[in-house]
Simulated assay, not measured.
Amino acid sequence: MTANATNETSASGITLEDLPLRDELRGKSAYGAPQLTVANQLNTNENPYPPSQALVDDLVAEVARLATTLNRYPERDAVELRRDLAAYVSEQTGVEVSYEQVWAANGSNEVLQQLLQAFGGPGRTVLGFQPSYSMHPILAAGTQTQFLNCPRDENFRIDLDAALAAIAKQQPNIVFITTPNNPTGDVTPLEDIEKLIDAAPGIVIVDEAYMEFSDSPSSTTLLAKYPTKLVVSRTMSKAFDFAGGRLGYFVAHPAFVEAVMLVRLPYHLSVLSQAAARVALRHSKDTLGTVAKLAVQRDRVVSRLEELGYEVVPSESNFVFFGRFADQHEVWEEFLNRDVLIRDVGVDGFLRTTIGLPEENDAFLSAAQQLTGYITPRS
């Protein structure tokens, strides 16, 4: 379509409502945080530290080596990358993992989408505990899987009794557990996760996108006990300074890998994506050194917010969930007016800030100090 044709279509007044969209997608909004250019961008949970120069040099050399092969399709099953991921997971979690247990895709979102394509679909349900990762309901809708919500308690933790009751009543095909939870940052204890797996009639997907920022044990420690029920999803976007690299993966019994191979697109991971991820894994010790720095900054931010009188949810991630406000979006705008971009995730009374560089956190805390008048007491 030419530019003129595109302009004519826009000028004709045609909107999404005029298209034969699936009914369950009507009225929905696309995922996305505001992309604004401000001095302190603390709204997307990225790692603020750039990759090390050693990693950059290694990547440039690797891309140069592979550039002449780009006329060929990539290695379809990404076996070497999966071997490297398995070695990393084994070292990081203490659970011995083979490459047959690991699957990789373009970010953990694609991993979750593939799992829903394989185990969800029309007539099937997935249970989540909101507020949690906002892509879960979107991915469910995209795969025609009915999303069921069991709300978290007033402290934003999973209400175990309510969760077990919901599982017993709804009998979901899939259960999502996000730990550390996004947007709240809290961790669900391993013993609670085990009770939920025991109760679930189908599979349980534990989303561990931020687990490197936590001292809590990974759910991979439960894989041997629940080989047909448990999948642990992870990502390189956060801890690895690798959000632009788009690499996620899951760890599970090899049968789950066979399952998603039935629905994955052929050659879904490019030569360059696989190479970049392998380079990042080679430099994981340098990269993960930033995790410790961010944990120190996180604790500093939490401590100061509490001193200022804010209510803060305990966080084991690289972000902090805080409030309370009568109108959280008004407060979000006040932060933006002070050149600090944080995230309004749509939870009444609360906002989320990513932990950034020390000077970015200073700017955030300075703004927070100026905005204490917006704090409302817990009712």
Rank of each mutant, 00 (worst) to 15 (best):
R22I: 04
I138K: 15
E24F: 02
I342L: 07
Y210S: 03
I158M: 13
A165F: 06
M135C: 12
T2P: 14
P189L: 08
A367P: 03
S52Q: 04
V102W: 02
F335K: 06
V126K: 09
L19T: 00
V63I: 15
G128T: 01
D344P: 01
G202N: 04
A368R: 00
P201A: 08
G356C: 07
A105H: 05
A67M: 11
Q171A: 15
Y374C: 11
A105T: 10
L294P: 00
L21Q: 13
E191C: 14
L305E: 01
E307I: 12
T221K: 14
N4A: 12
E62V: 09
E24V: 04
Q369M: 11
L112W: 01
T178W: 07
Y210Q: 01
F156K: 11
S284L: 09
V204G: 08
P254T: 05
I203K: 02
L262N: 11
L196P: 04
G107T: 13
Y310E: 09
L25I: 01
G13Q: 03
W332I: 15
E359C: 11
D57E: 15
L272K: 10
H283W: 03
A30G: 15
R300Q: 12
L85G: 00
V102A: 00
V301T: 04
V175P: 04
I375D: 05
F325P: 00
P74C: 07
E212N: 13
S10G: 12
G142D: 08
Q297P: 08
A104P: 00
V291E: 08
P358D: 06
K293P: 10
A67V: 13
A86H: 01
T178Y: 11
V89K: 01
V206S: 07
V302R: 01
S237Y: 03
H283I: 07
G349D: 00
A165V: 07
V175L: 09
E311Y: 04
G120Y: 04
E194Y: 12
T93N: 06
N4M: 11
V320W: 03
E307L: 10
I174T: 01
G202L: 11
G123E: 01
R264K: 14
R278C: 01
R278L: 03
D161C: 15
P74F: 08
L139F: 02
D18L: 09
L55P: 05
F147W: 15
D192T: 10
F335H: 02
T9G: 13
Q369A: 14
N7W: 09
Q92E: 09
P131W: 12
L341V: 02
R343T: 15
Q274C: 06
F176V: 13
L160Y: 07
E100D: 10
V296W: 02
V340N: 03
Y226P: 00
T37G: 15
R152K: 15
A118E: 00
V187Q: 05
D161S: 14
S90C: 12
D153T: 08
L371Y: 01
P131D: 07
E194G: 08
Q328L: 08
V291P: 03
F325Q: 01
A275W: 09
P377R: 11
V260F: 05
R83K: 12
Y310Q: 08
D344A: 12
S303F: 10
T290L: 03
T228Y: 13
F325R: 04
Q369T: 13
V63M: 15
A67T: 09
L365P: 02
R65T: 09
H253Y: 09
T228R: 08
Y133N: 12
